[in-house]
Design a protein around this nucleic acid. Structure first.
Lengths: 210, 210, 210, 210
DNA sequence: TTCTAAACGAGACGGTACGTCCCGTCTTGTG
DNA sequence: CACAAGACGGGACGTACCGTCTCGTTTAGAA
């Protein structure tokens, strides 16, 4: 939990530097992106952000808390697509997902997510954002498709997000392991593949029983 | 660079303890499983494995190298399925993938893989194993399907592996974020969904036509 | 280079623990006394002194530097004798020297000094203290003797200190090699011998040409 | 029947390399002279001597034993002077002593002696050589002087050796602390000073009378 | 204004892990 | 057997970072 939601804390004393959180979180994300877990140091973040270490520890309990917050800070607002067709909507979602993982910051966010999921303490709010919020978007997409008559039958939204996001993640992972850049053309081609497979699989023979 | 490929190094001097690599890698995986990146220490691994630190550093240059090798330890075990039908083969592959990520050790291997893929040094050999070897398996599966007349047309094997493995990963991730156990029924149901979608999507409208 | 001369270092930041130097140097001397060069460890000194290793390395560059400083710790205490006679002054000086080497801590300081003198880096300041400061004392003693008319002619002060200190050292060395205690009577007798020899040798036939 | 100390160890097996001890001890002394305690390593000695480490440990129990032996190996044969005069004999002895401490190897021997004297276990043989043997020499010198009528009265030989050797040691120590070379002229002048003081002190007013 | 409380920069502190080096032991193969 | 080679457990080295702490300095509202 972070202090960023709290009200300005009326009272005496010198008020907290405005904009400090923002700068520090930004610096933290950059350091993490560049150096990974190892090589991500509180001293380094403080230096890069231009603050003293005490300022960091005044706001976050420890390294993990800062990193968690840094990831949350810029967690991409899930786009609310409505292109008018199921194919278009899924393509837009898949493209966004593929881009997210191809982007260094997005990749860092995913790493954090993995670590988070490996920790013991639950992270209710974060979970809801990620899986819950995504589910709503996907359900909206399919509801509109049903309304348009493009699609009939049930669908397990999580299966669809898992397929699309998973494909995007492993696409990016393969590139990273090879230390190859992600080419724009390749990305769109792969997105098209994935959308086609998912769409055809769902329409022709939906896993309706689920 | 790893020592696991080298021949026993004929010559004088005391030979390296047989089985040491295996034990150390196993200990490393356990430590990582329990403590994650932070809290994963060379001293800890050495102690758990029952070896001196120098024995570790004689085989691996640093923490990263050990971790990389530990990932490789069992990831290579790729089942060579041949159930007699495309549907059966894919189901077997997908089930194995889902189980891998549902398993704590498999999950740890994946975490390591993520950290590894974020490092700076290339991992040539490893990439070939991971993506290359998997590709061969998938290609074998589809080749046999083609021979049996179940399937015609090309397919991008990596797309298929990405879809299946990705779905398995996000399935496990969702469970972990919610701190829910993976139920056997749910796993098989989800595998069935994924296989159906992939199979129908590929057969009815293979991405290769494009 | 040592930190003991520096002024309190005006400025920000937490000030260095007062008395830390003293405690650490004392602990170092004790460890050296007990274990010698081998077995004298920075971790051991830190533990004994009750400080973290970083506190040690913040003040001394390495083991040698700490040892060098520990030698200096009390060696500087040179008594400023003035008994009213040359014989009395020399007896006092010689007694102090003999006692220094007979004392375990004094012996340890001498061992350190030997190791230190074998090192590569120069010890300018220290040299001045040791040989220079002693010289002044000896010169003062002889000057006063000349003023009193007890003694005429020049003398090489260093020769005198070398004679007295050297005799004291070898006296203690002999006892140590035999694992015999230093008896008080024997010490005073030997001091008397040495003073008499030096004094008579100087007065009757001074090494005036020097 | 052989007159050598060690029998060649008749028996099966490969005989010990002849001359190995000599070479190793020589290498050990060189390493110690160059690097001091720190920096004196068994691996280093083995490499320099051209033997394997096991060969060293087959002959000496540990580092200390090797070093002790190395020092003993070349401990200078105490010269049996007889110049025909007390002054000449003492000058010869003192010159030898001063040279011994000025010489790097002699200095190393002295360091070893100090460490030895600080250890707990007694070193009978070594002690006898050093203090006992030297005593005999000094006593011989004074006996001959008495026979020649140059000198009458008793003398405490250890006092004399302590004075001379001690002066030589501190002379060398001073030079080392200053990182100055020992000049030949300076050495002989200092020797003359010391001999004169000692001789005059002893002859005019021998401590024995008192 | 003066006072007071908090935020802040700086950096010392105890502690822990890093990766390196060496000791003394051991285990092999060769001479 | 002696010996070369070198792996091994153990432990100290000197470095780097964590999270805590104590200073002096700054910045505001309260008195």
């Amino acid at each position: 939990m972070t202090s960023s939601d709290e009200q300005p804390r009326r009272g005496r004393g010198r008020p907290r530097s405005p904009g400090a959180e923002e700068k520090i979180l930004h610096a933290a994300l950059e350091e993490y992106t560049e150096h990974g877990w190892a090589g991500f140091t509180m001293d380094g973040v403080a230096r890069r952000a231009g603050f003293g270490k005490s300022t960091l520890y005044l706001r976050w309990a420890d390294k993990d808390a800062l990193l968690t917050d840094a990831v949350r800070l810029r967690t991409r607002v899930i786009l609310e697509v409505d292109t008018g067709s199921l194919h278009g909507d899924l393509t837009a979602l898949a493209t966004a997902a593929f881009r997210e993982y191809a982007d260094p910051e997005g990749w860092a966010r995913f790493r954090m997510l993995i670590d988070t999921a490996s920790a013991s303490q639950p992270l209710g709010q974060f979970t809801r954002e990620l899986s819950g919020r995504h589910r709503e978007v996907i359900e909206g997409v399919f509801q509109r498709a049903r309304d348009r008559g493009e699609f009939s039958g049930d669908v397990a939204p999580l299966s669809v997000t898992d397929l699309i996001y998973g494909a995007g993640l492993f696409f990016a992972l393969g590139r990273r392991l090879d230390h190859r850049q992600v080419e724009e053309e390749e990305l769109t081609a792969r997105v098209a593949d994935v959308v086609n497979v998912v769409l055809d699989g769902l329409i022709r023979r939906p896993p309706a029983e689920k």
